[in-house]
Write a protein that binds this DNA or RNA. Structure first.
Length: 493
RNA sequence: GGUCCCAUCGUCUAGCGGUCUAGGAUACUGGCCUCUCACGCCAGAGACACGGGUUCGAUUCCCGUUGGGACUACCA
């Protein structure tokens, strides 16, 4: 019988969830979904100094927003510190680890010397072979100690087959006797993480490539503890355009999941973009529904080369990776209107122009209007900014539109009121009738229809661009159109 | 410094010895459409880091160089 897959996402709550972490969570989630396995959320909060309740909540909110679901947890690493300590004691008792009484100063000094000699800066094993007598003496003297894992001596090596990177081999002699417990008795991440994974019966460790170099050490811990070794799949890192690892510290909000939430991204669009960073299908397909993505996903499709998250700081045209925006745009335009309705509503509420009628008596109108204007928007916030005139009477007139489409044609001062009257007089206010009236008016005054059309668009929507004008008029509604045109004269004052 | 990983258009990528005059996406340019702007459609420009091998034949395999990245804490 095949063993059930269990994977985990173990964020450290020292900050918000960023792009890189989200991507790791997504890959784990997809693998669990694909294999019918479980995803465990484990908060690695053992660094109490830097962890906070607020960050934990933020990470959970971001995961939920993305639609990444987990089957167990959140567990908190700090609750299991007794297990980590117990594991260290077992290692000590079985001779797989030893106490090291070297002082930090000694170690620093030795490291410094090694650096000067240009040699590897490994621990020299001073305390590795202390006799029981010597140990007892130092303990009796109250000398503080930390615990190091005893790396097997000799020619051997640690070897494992990473699902993404292939066979990785590391010689014992290239691994130092690394610290697993601090002198204050606190276990270190490398130990805690392995112990937690063993307890949680993790079958596949899917994480960033930055964990690759530490994997041999962790395998040594698994072996020393007599635990089965999980499969490893390391994924390429996300780099910034300068090829530096993405981090909260250097990139700030730009790389936070919540930044994209606040800037008009649809969660699935962000997820879809993120999964494309380091993963692909043989046919280079890029747009997937949730079901399609789970179906298509496989660890074998993960790329080895790091990917650049093309964030563009201070780019007037793109506030983030153009590809991410284009995927968001795609969903904004192609999803059923009902699917994006809630996001539009949220934006209108945020802008203070939400009207309950939009989901009441004017619900059909609301959906049709969203559908009418969405093809030129990229982010959901556009509905409240660029699309404001459709939902509120309080909208700004873009200076460029005012100048180019209204002030340039002084005749509009007279034409606007005429148009207002004539549109008001139409029997049934339809696209066809409105168009007829406007074109006839243009003929009558001997001007190109475009002048009236563009002028009306600027007056009615505040913008120089937008959907076909006659559709706009119907969407905005006769009453408002007439009212707005009636005020048109004031532009010239 | 040591150990390890990586290397195809600006960016994300396909390619797993001949199908490559290297495919897709995005961004960019031009055109069509048109009341504007988008959408859509059509077209264009744009890459196998370099040098050695192996082979009848290398983008694909091996080695080296260069470049980039990660790890190397009593952080996680």
């Amino acid at each position: 019988m095949k063993q059930e897959v269990v994977v985990r996402f173990p964020p450290s709550p020292t900050g918000y969830l960023h792009i890189g972490g989200a991507r790791t969570a997504i890959f784990n989630w997809l693998f669990a979904q694909k294999t019918g396995g479980k995803l465990i959320l484990r908060i690695e909060d053992t660094d109490a100094e830097r962890s906070s309740e607020e960050m934990i909540q933020g990470i959970i909110d971001s995961l939920k927003w993305l639609g990444v679901t987990w089957d167990e947890g959140p567990y908190f690493q700090s609750r299991f510190s007794n297990e980590h300590v117990a594991a260290a004691k077992r290692l000590l008792d079985s001779g797989h680890a030893y106490k090291c009484f070297c002082t930090k100063e000694d170690l620093d000094q030795k490291r410094e010397e090694a650096r000067k000699r240009k040699a590897a800066l490994q621990y020299d094993g001073t305390c590795r072979n202390l006799t029981p007598d010597e140990i007892a003496k130092k303990e009796a003297a109250g000398t503080p100690y930390l615990i190091r894992l005893k790396v097997p001596p000799g020619e051997g090596s640690v070897m494992f087959a990473d699902i993404v990177y292939g066979i990785i081999e590391k010689k014992y002699e290239d691994i130092e006797d690394f610290v697993i417990v601090r002198s204050n008795g606190q276990p270190l991440y490398i130990l805690s993480n392995a112990v937690d994974d063993i307890r949680d019966r993790i079958t596949h460790v899917i994480r960033g490539q930055d964990g690759l170099a530490n994997t041999p050490k962790q395998i040594l811990i698994y072996k020393a503890l007599g635990a089965p070794i999980p499969k490893f799949a390391h994924m390429p890192l996300t780099l910034d355009p300068k090829k530096a690892k993405i981090s909260k510290r250097t990139h700030g909000e730009m790389v936070a999941v919540h930044f994209y939430r606040e800037h008009g991204f649809l969660p699935w669009a962000l997820l879809n973009y993120l999964v494309l960073l380091g993963w692909s299908t043989p046919d280079s397909r890029e747009i997937f529904s949730k079901e399609e993505l789970i179906e298509a996903f496989s660890l074998e499709g993960i790329n080895r080369a790091n990917a650049v998250f093309d964030v563009r700081k201070d780019d007037p045209k793109f506030f983030t990776d153009p590809k991410a925006i284009s995927i968001n745009t795609h969903y904004l335009r192609n999803l059923p209107v009902e699917d994006i309705e809630p996001y539009v509503r949220a934006e209108l509420e945020k802008a203070g122009i939400w009207d309950p009628e939009f989901e009441g008596t004017r619900h059909d109108w609301f959906l049709r209007t969203i559908d009418l204007i969405r093809s030129r928007y990229h982010i959901t916030t556009d509905f409240a900014t660029l699309g404001r005139a459709y939902f509120s009477d309080d909208y700004p007139i873009e200076p460029k539109a005012l100048k180019k489409n209204i002030l340039k044609h002084e005749g509009l001062k007279e034409w606007f009121p005429v148009l207002a009257d004539r549109l008001q007089a139409i029997d049934t206010f339809t696209v066809e009738e409105a168009e007829k009236v406007i074109r006839e008016t243009a003929d009558e005054f001997g001007i190109k229809a475009g002048i009236l059309i563009n002028g009306i668009r600027a007056a009615v929507t505040g913008q120089a661009v937008g959907p076909g004008l006659f559709d706009v008029l119907i969407a905005v509604g006769r009453t408002r159109v007439v009212e707005r045109l009636g005020k048109g004269v004031s532009f010239f004052e």
